[in-house]
């Protein structure tokens, strides 16, 4: 009798140990996007997942929780248990949004573990060759002539593109006005139609659209896919070769180590995948596979940097 009891107990122990060892992920992972379907990060997440399927059997479900510039999506993820089955897909602009909305940084930024950074997308200034003003020299001359009335366009006020514009004005010593449009493409249209002179965005924005050229790109060396685009350094604007927009994934703090390691691993595999690279690299995007250490460092840098500049330009107090 005692022996059979012991046997049963042993089985139970083994079984429960087996259950505990059930590897992450053993149920669908929800990837929460703050962009609507078809939006930039939404497309990126979906592409990531479709490439990732080559390396894992995990089931992913993409969700869109738009609103409040990303805050609603962040909140949705923070409300879920920290078990690694709800993942948020942020970009730099979400972190900026937290800062400009005066939300608690410890809750909204450091309440996450930044596990996987997918890429660094260089910021750039875009103009239209339909306009008379479409090189940097033109822009500077035109700015001086218009004496502060020159117009730069972008999708929002106070966002990272706006911040980039202000940094450029400061370094270049020119004055200009920022006009926020409802969306990136509309802001680009604004330059194409001559309403504004410069659009601040990323090289990928040009893809497929005619009539645009890159005036300056934030990169140490010229981008292979855009050999005609001068870098800020070449134009004499120093200290502006590291302005990038990143996209990645983050999970709620307290997520089990196993889950986070799994994501870092998966990212390494996807980052090396030729399919993934060919999706991004032609747009001048640098594919990276940064895990927690480097990603967290990047986020810290962005927060500090942005806070400094936002206070300086009066975006926040």
């Amino acid at each position: 009798m005692k022996k059979s009891l012991l046997f049963v107990a042993l089985c139970l122990v083994i079984l429960s140990a087996g259950a505990a060892l059930a590897a992450y992920p053993d149920k669908p992972i929800r990837v929460v996007n703050y962009a609507g379907p078809g939006g930039l990060m939404d497309v990126t997440s979906r592409k990531f997942i479709s490439v990732a399927q080559k390396y894992t059997n995990a089931v992913f479900v993409v969700e869109n929780k738009e609103g409040a510039g990303g805050l609603i999506g962040m909140q949705a993820v923070l409300e879920q248990p920290a078990d690694g089955y709800t993942v948020f897909a942020p970009t730099t602009s979400v972190v900026m949004k937290v800062l400009t909305s005066n939300k608690d940084i410890d809750e909204y930024v450091w309440g996450f573990e930044w596990v996987a950074m997918l890429m660094r997308d260089p910021e750039c200034l875009i103009g239209s060759d339909k306009n008379a003003v479409h090189t940097w020299a033109d822009v500077v001359k035109d700015a001086k002539e218009k004496n502060g009335a020159q117009l730069w366009t972008g999708p929002a006020a106070g966002g990272n593109d706006h911040l980039m514009a202000m940094k450029t004005w400061e370094v270049a010593g020119i004055k200009a006005k920022w006009i926020p449009y409802n969306s990136g493409p509309e802001a680009m249209l604004g330059v194409l139609s001559g309403q504004g002179v410069v659009y601040v965005g990323n090289p990928a924005d040009i893809g497929g659209r005619e009539g645009y050229n890159i005036i300056a790109v934030s990169s140490k060396e010229r981008l292979k896919s855009f050999p005609d685009a001068p870098t800020f350094g070449e134009l004499g604007l120093m200290g502006m070769d590291d302005e990038t927009m990143w996209r990645g994934f983050c999970v709620k703090k307290g997520t089990p180590e196993e889950a986070m390691v799994w994501w870092e691993d998966l990212l390494k595999k996807v980052a090396a995948d030729p399919d993934w690279r060919s999706f991004l690299e032609p747009d001048g995007i640098e594919v990276v596979d940064w895990g927690r250490d480097k990603f967290t460092e990047q986020v810290k840098k962005d927060v500090d940097d942005s806070l400094t500049y936002m206070k300086k330009y009066g975006i926040i107090k």
Binding site: G38, V43, L189, L192, G208, R209, E210
Partner: peptide, 28 residues
């Protein structure tokens, strides 16, 4: 013609094109 979606639904179409690695716009 310009690669710019004229409505929210058109914006989703942009995403669909991009996932298939096509760019909306005159290139099409």
């Amino acid at each position: 013609a310009l690669g710019i979606p004229g409505s929210a639904s058109a914006a989703v179409l942009v995403g669909a094109l991009m996932i298939h690695e096509l760019r909306p716009g005159p290139e099409l």
